[in-house]
């Protein structure tokens, strides 16, 4: 079965991103397909490559990046939500004339249409939020 996962909350503040990660991992282990993981609202902050969590804690961004690499996951950060919150990839940095970017290369920035498309193309869309 094909799933799209929508995450609405940032890392560490709320369990949503952790729950979504555990769900995604379990779904893949059971042989399901993850069509897309979509990061919206404050969840765009999960994509920062600059976070430095304590050594004995999980690194949520790296966890997602590793899962994505192993399973060829499509992880999309909403561009409108990301711009509002200062989350930029290199292209956006250049286009907007900013002096830095912060998005981990395992994630890509795109529009909200990607979420709607996820709902259309997947058998189930599941939301993790506050």
């Amino acid at each position: 079965m094909k799933f799209t996962i929508l995450i609405n909350e940032g890392p560490y503040q709320h369990q949503a991103a952790d729950s979504a990660y555990q769900f995604a991992k379990a779904a893949l282990e059971k042989g399901h397909e993850i069509f897309r993981v979509f990061f919206y609202n404050d969840a765009v902050n999960n994509a920062t490559r600059l976070a430095i969590p304590p050594q004995d804690d999980r690194n949520i961004t790296v966890q997602w990046a590793e899962l994505a690499e192993q399973n060829n996951l499509d992880m999309v950060v909403c561009i409108a939500a990301a711009q509002r919150r200062g989350m930029l990839d290199d292209d956006e940095r250049d286009r907007q004339g900013k002096d830095a970017s912060n998005i981990h290369p395992a994630f890509r920035i795109s529009g909200l249409g990607q979420l709607v498309e996820g709902g259309i193309q997947s058998d189930r869309l599941i939301t993790f939020g506050d």
Binding site: M1, Q22, A26, A27, E29, K30, H32, R124, I126
Partner: peptide, 10 residues
């Protein structure tokens, strides 16, 4: 468990 969670969604 999480596998059961996945089953419920499916």
């Amino acid at each position: 468990d999480y596998a059961g969670f996945v089953d419920l969604v499916a």
